[in-house]
Design a binder for these strands. Structure first.
Length: 437
RNA sequence: CGGGGCGUGGCGCAGCCUGGUAGCGCGCCUGUUUUGGGUACAGGAGGUCGUGGGUUCGAGUCCCGCCGCCCCGACCA
């Protein structure tokens, strides 16, 4: 994208409503604009990040054997009356009445709808296990939306639902998802720590929340430093292998990690002092096993091997996709702006033309821009260098390729790594290779 | 939902107490200038002062209602 022709409305001054860093930076860098309390429009830069996160989530869900579907945002109230949650959910649920006076709602989650879909289509144990997911907008009418997209009312969420013949199968599905989650977060450049969680209004007895560390996190967390060094991508864990899943799960649950509410001083004391870590965390994912809660309530039964009908065991697995955008920024920014992890950055690099109109500068920039094929943001505006440096830092591109008249004369550019501030002078080819590779 | 605060040009704010026909900085447009960390000068555009009503000769300013947004707390992907 050429900045001069793009739509990235950055702002110099901090909007007064933004209290925390991610919210402030998302507004300033032109990622989102608020439409009403807790509801945001996503602008090109923010949307690219959202799509990148979505892509990684999707790839890992597919790799774990889940199938993508897309369920509607608007749901009929009848399904929720069947499960009993229509009355339980309270004012968080946005209720809508259509022209025929039918009661509808904007879905805050999809257990009822997926169970309905399941019972319509699945009739036999032979079709199990089954894991279906979708990435769809949800709405929860929070009393008090805040922190920008991290605690909005409308949010994009990946939610998966597993169906298994028995408890053992459900546990396997649960572990598979847990592994997929660790990989997903690792690919995004995040250190996520699974913590035993309260099961909350969804119910059940096996549940973990995935917390990423950031100074402004909403909850206090305690964990074993051993979590920080495990590599789930290269760790040799295969989804298809029960042994691997067992090893993975045992490994991960043997280490201590808990939020304040679930913290146990006794167990904490058992963690070696040198490995004790505490900090603030942001919840970016949550997984639950809840058995036959919905299959029973909604009578979703399939035939077993013995010909008798039974209610499959379920679990649900959520990742806050839009929340992650804010959470990543909370975990990765400095005074100058955002510092995107490479995997989810909106662009691989920004090309800064320090002297727009200079033949050598223009030629190098155009060449680089073409080579990146849309993966670079070209700052071709006729502003001063300082403006470009500041905007590039604010937007947080992992690399900045600085093309100025000084170096351009000899075919050199300056490559700056946003995260470290390190700058090196390189040839155009070297710079391109370093960023693209 | 309890407590508090704020709505004045795109953004940040002053003006309100003590009514007299709207101002500052940034941004935006034009020109000149400048060109490696938010350049300088000159000119210019842009405002139903959230909204409805009331008081008054006169309301951004005073009074009442409503709406919106933000902050603290309780609650939550």
């Amino acid at each position: 994208m050429r900045l001069s022709r793009g739509f990235i409305p950055t702002i110099k001054e901090t909007p007064s409503e933004a209290q925390i860093a991610s919210h402030r930076l998302m507004l300033r860098a032109g990622l989102v604009r608020q439409t009403s309390a807790g509801i945001y429009a996503w602008l090109p830069l923010g949307l690219r990040v959202l799509r990148n996160i979505e892509r990684i989530v999707r790839e890992e869900q597919n790799a774990a054997g889940a199938h993508e579907v897309l369920m509607p945002t608007i749901q009929p109230a009848e399904l929720w009356k069947e499960s009993g949650r229509y009355d339980d959910y309270g004012k968080e649920m946005l209720r809508i009445t259509d022209r025929h006076e039918r009661e509808m709602l904007y879905g805050p989650t999809n257990e009822e709808m997926i169970t309905d879909l399941f019972r319509q289509c699945v009739k036999s144990y032979r079709d199990l296990p089954l894991n279906l997911y979708h990435i769809q907008w949800k709405f929860r009418d929070e009393v008090r939306p805040r922190f920008g997209v991290m605690r909005g009312r409308e949010f994009l969420m990946k939610d998966a639902y597993s169906f298994d013949v028995d408890h053992a199968g459900a546990v396997r599905s649960y572990r598979t998802m847990m592994l997929a989650y660790m990989r997903t977060f690792q690919r995004m450049g995040l250190k996520a720590i699974p913590m035993v969680a309260d099961t909350g209004p969804i119910g059940g007895d096996l549940s973990h929340e995935f917390i990423i560390l950031a100074p402004t996190g909403e909850s206090q967390v305690y964990y074993d430093a051993a979590f920080e060094s495990v590599d789930y991508l290269a760790g040799g864990f295969r989804h298809e292998s029960d042994e691997d899943l067992e090893r993975f799960f045992t490994d991960i649950t043997s280490r201590y990690a808990a939020t304040e509410e679930m913290h146990s001083a006794e167990k904490w004391a058992a963690v070696p002092a040198t490995s004790q870590r505490e900090g603030r965390g942001i919840e970016v994912g949550h997984i639950f096993y809840f058995g036959t809660k919905y299959t029973k309530a909604m009578n979703a039964a399939v035939a077993g091997a013995d010909g008798k009908m039974f209610h499959p065991e379920m679990g649900s697995y959520g990742i806050g996709v839009s929340r992650l955008v804010g959470a990543v920024i909370e975990a990765s920014h400095d005074d100058a702006g955002i510092v995107w992890p490479d995997a989810i950055a909106p662009f691989k690099a920004a090309i800064l033309n320090l002297k727009n109109g200079d033949a050598a500068c223009d030629a190098i920039c155009e060449d680089l821009y073409a080579r990146f094929g849309g993966e670079a943001l070209y700052d071709d505006r006729s502003d001063r260098a300082g403006v470009k440096f500041n905007d590039a830092d604010l937007m947080g591109h992992p690399w900045q390729i600085v093309v100025g008249p000084r170096g351009a004369a000899t075919g050199k550019v300056e490559l700056k790594r946003r995260a470290t501030g390190e700058r090196v002078e390189l040839s155009v080819d070297e710079a391109f290779a370093k960023v693209a590779g």
